[in-house]
Design a protein around this nucleic acid. Structure first.
Lengths: 343, 343
DNA sequence: TCTAGCACTCGGAGGTTAAGAGTGCTAAAA
DNA sequence: TTTTAGCACTCTTAACCTCCGAGTGCTAGA
């Protein structure tokens, strides 16, 4: 059954009023908020209908109505009019990126923190590694008599290192040999294609050196895997404690969000411009009172990760979504710029 | 005024019972818990005295008594008998250190997490950089046409890198030159003595190269500073939400603990074996209902950092202190071992 | 110095009531 | 057919009351 124009307006008004006040919305109050003149009784009959259809919920008989997640869904999908950003708001977001450290990991981490302070929500920034990322450089560096550091630089600017203890004496000659070998065989290679098989084949090629260098090749494989898995930064989880509507479950929610694989499965997009998961739409019951909003960002024209936030169901979507999108765009541009990754 | 033996026993019993139950302790219950036989009335008169002297507090007239922070202090300083660890407990702590990554940063971070899971408290692990730490190696690595990575390895196993964008073309020759130069001038140098002045003097020595290399020298200085400042890892802050006696202030507490300088000033020891700050003894009112327990750990015979935890005032000090000390010892031994830093 | 007895205090649980907000229904008006 | 006004009804919340029990403080006697 389709919603009539008046019912749409009423639903939208209920959602917006509820977002503002957090209280169940009654017909009398609503009558004053609508742009057209109808009596509370009329509104009541429409509200009864919206309730029947599942757009509204009723905490108890003598209270007003609260939008159900279906109501929010309808609002976000078709009723909401996004509020465009003002010049000042743009400037404010721009100023969040006072880049001190161009390291992309740090940048993502800092971005998550800034966004969390700005929105008063828990935020997540993630990077997915595009399929085109290659190994730019591998370097073995002597760190002690039996200790070396393997440093890997990827073409998207990500840098990782790993310490390895060796069971042989590290000499300058060995270092030079290995670096030449590793860069010849691995430099320029697509990170996703560095498999255990390939590592094994390299190990065989090394012949007599195989025994001493295999641990390093394994370390390289692990570094590739680490880079390929991307990163997830959660920030400002404690901000969720500000919302007492998220009742006692915040603890479970925060504990849950500390797990990387949860974040990974939650903050995944499939080509949408943005995505909102409202309350009970979430799989996990810890998120039943929260909404998750996310949007992708692009680096050099390619999708490079996700920027998202977790807040109470009752957040100002019409405001937060354009803000988040602008934030993601700014982040993407900055990364594109820093790492000369223009298309 | 000195405490008589009986008063000591009563105070200790009150503290221990309160730690167990979390409820105010009454004279009747107490009479059953004491090792000697006295009537509740006798206990009451002693309790009245302890109350007068400030060792006990009274939530309201008709409730039992609760130890004040002075009472806890007396208990911890002179009444408490630490419970030695069982074989099983030792094994359990040992098993927390299932080292995957010997990187000392990761190790500290993992240790904080493991300790937090084990104790159900928020935990902090920190490393202070001993005055004897030297630069083991500096390495400039080309990462792109105009981008280089500076990698620094310190003698205590800490590794840091920094990305620098240069305004000149990075050639192999320049890299080689700089690495030779940097390691000759900086290798083996005490990290604490790398000052802006020294960096400036190096810059002058470089003569015509000065212009292009100065940004790298600055990066090196910053890396030294970073390493010298040490690290602080907070873990399991959300564990504090389990204790509802920490009432609504947990939010402020957690927000506060996110600030590095707060942690830094809080987790500082001055040669003690362990240190406990109880409730209101803390400077900040966010910590008024919490206790902070910390103990140092040694690497290669030298103090290398702090292991600490934050929990409700009512934690089992007699158990937690030896556990924390054993944990710190294990952590220190492991780090000593990994980085061959035996004295 | 310790103990038994007793009056006293206070907080919490449980029940009751009154106020207020908001609904649903019905009948009349547009 | 749709909208409106009126009214009875429901349910929550806050305030108030009362009672019970735990625990104390005091006093007199052992």
């Amino acid at each position: 059954m389709k919603l009539s124009e008046r019912k749409k307006a009423i639903l939208a008004a209920i959602v917006e009023t509820y977002i503002q006040t957090g209280e169940p919305v009654g017909s009398k109050l609503l009558a004053t908020k609508l742009s057209f003149q109808v009596s509370p009784a009329t509104i009541r009959s429409d509200m009864a209908w919206l309730f029947e259809m599942g757009y509204l919920e009723q905490p108890h008989t003598s209270a007003g109505r609260v939008p159900s997640h279906l109501g929010f869904r309808e609002y976000i999908d078709s009723l909401m009019r996004c509020k465009p950003l003002t010049q000042d708001e743009r400037r404010e977001i721009d100023s969040l990126f006072n880049v001190r450290n161009p390291d992309p990991d740090k940048l993502l981490e800092d971005a998550a923190e800034a966004l969390s302070d700005y929105t008063h929500c828990a935020t997540v920034t993630s990077s997915i590694t595009p399929k085109t990322v290659r190994i730019r450089r591998v370097e073995m560096i002597a760190a002690g008599q039996n200790t070396v550091v393997i440093l890997m630089i990827a073409s998207n600017g990500v840098i990782r290192n790993k310490i390895c203890r060796m069971d042989f004496q590290v000499t300058e000659k060995l270092v030079e040999f290995f670096n030449k070998f590793a860069n010849a065989r691995l430099g320029g290679m697509n990170i996703a294609t560095v498999s255990t098989n390939y590592i094994n084949s390299l190990s065989i090629v090394l012949g007599e050196y195989s025994r001493i260098f295999t641990p390093l090749l394994v370390a390289i494989f692990e570094l590739c895997k680490e880079i390929n898995d991307g990163q997830y930064y959660l920030s400002g989880g404690t901000k969720l404690l500000e919302y007492n509507e998220l009742n006692i479950l915040v603890r479970d929610l925060l504990t849950m969000l500390e797990k990387r694989d949860i974040l990974q499965s939650l903050f995944t997009l499939e080509g949408e411009d943005f995505r909102v998961i409202i309350g009970k739409e979430n799989q996990s019951m810890e998120l039943a009172d929260s909404s998750v909003v996310m949007t992708p960002y692009n680096v050099g024209g390619e999708p490079a990760g996700t920027v998202g936030l977790i807040g109470p169901v009752r957040i100002d979507y019409a405001k937060i979504i354009p803000h988040l999108e602008y934030f993601a765009k700014t982040l993407g541009d900055l990364l594109t710029d820093t790492f000369e990754l223009h298309q």
